[in-house]
């Protein structure tokens, strides 16, 4: 992890809508050159957090700063160096895509450049169509092209690929990697876990308005279980009694089983297994999806 000053710093952020506590405790930071994955179930507070960062909503407690400046007080100065793509892109219905891209660039003091043209071509957008006739995916392309041709330091993407086809999704990922190489910071909120797994340096998991976990994927894997499918010469009848072993299923007789094991007990379990004379073994590291499921299905605290 870089020890530079963070681009984004959020601490104890809170937001209430009437009696409903949308955000109870949001805490994370993003450093320069980092792609941060922001994941959580629907309604967990991802978009609310992002809207506070954009100065659209005013927080009820805690602090949030971008480039060291308060997101509510200095929103205009911050936005000068920021680009944002929402999940649900709504555009001015009687303007063409080309006009909107140019307008969004101008509003940040940027210009329509050769890069913009290249992006329009790469995303295969017809810029002459009126925004009202665009499909969801095409509206997203308009916002993405404007964001990628903006020369910003911090990029916020809120489920940006939910309407894109796989080809354009690929293109999105390449573009984000280019931003990363150029030392820019990215906040990526997404439900497409493969995308997050592939691109993000660190991940924050939000549930019910609270950040429940942050760290690199590797860090998080230590917190969770590896699935092991093993076949041995000697009987495996006593595997279930070892500490840290869960969900044992017998595959074929006593010699072929599969189970999950806690990361901290892995060494002990492996020693036991090799003592039983291995025939075949496959170990699957936990996927983000496993992590996700584990956090989401946990008991829900009362939010009221």
């Amino acid at each position: 992890m870089t020890q530079a000053t963070p681009v984004l710093k959020i601490s104890h952020l809170q937001k209430r809508f009437g009696k409903f506590n949308a955000l109870t405790d949001i805490d994370f930071a993003i450093y320069p050159g980092e792609v941060f994955g922001f994941i959580g179930p629907n309604g967990a507070g991802k978009s609310t957090t992002i809207r506070i960062l954009l100065g659209l909503l005013k927080a009820n407690g805690g602090t949030a700063t971008i480039f060291g400046q308060d997101v509510w007080q200095h929103s205009v100065a911050i936005h000068q160096r920021l680009a944002y793509v929402p999940g649900d892109v709504n555009l001015w219905p009687n303007l063409s895509g080309g006009e909107i891209i140019d307008l969004l660039l101008k509003l940040n003091g940027d210009q329509h450049t050769a890069k913009t043209d290249a992006l329009i071509k790469a995303f295969s957008l017809d810029p002459r169509k009126k925004a009202r006739t665009y499909s969801k995916g095409n509206r997203q392309k308009v916002a993405l092209i404007a964001a990628f041709s903006t020369d910003a330091d911090f990029y916020i993407f809120d489920e940006p690929t939910s309407g894109l086809d796989p080809l354009n999704e690929q293109l999105f990922q390449t573009q984000v990697l280019q931003l990363k190489q150029a030392g820019k910071s990215v906040l990526l909120s997404s439900h497409i876990l493969s995308e997050v797994e592939k691109m993000c340096d660190r991940i924050g998991i939000i549930r019910e308005g609270t950040i429940v976990e942050t760290g690199t994927l590797a860090d998080m894997r230590h917190l969770t279980r590896t699935t092991i499918d093993v076949q041995t010469v000697q009987s495996l009848a006593h595997v279930a009694e070892l500490p840290g072993v869960h969900g044992l299923t017998v595959k074929a007789g006593q010699n072929h089983v599969s189970f999950a094991v806690d990361a901290d007990q892995l060494t002990a379990v492996m020693q036991y297994l090799s003592a039983q004379q291995l025939v075949a073994i496959t170990s699957t590291p936990p996927t983000l999806e496993d992590l996700f499921m584990r956090y989401y299905t946990a008991a829900t605290p009362d939010r009221k």
């Binding site: 009687n94 307008l103 101008k106 810029p127 009126k130």
Partner: peptide, 23 residues
């Protein structure tokens, strides 16, 4: 029939006021 729009924004489209007038 809806007309085709412009390829690029005109120079006059540059801020919230001109955007509103354009609409």
């Amino acid at each position: 029939a809806p007309k085709q729009g412009r390829l690029r924004a005109s120079a006059s489209l540059m801020g919230p006021t001109t955007l509103l007038l354009r609409q």
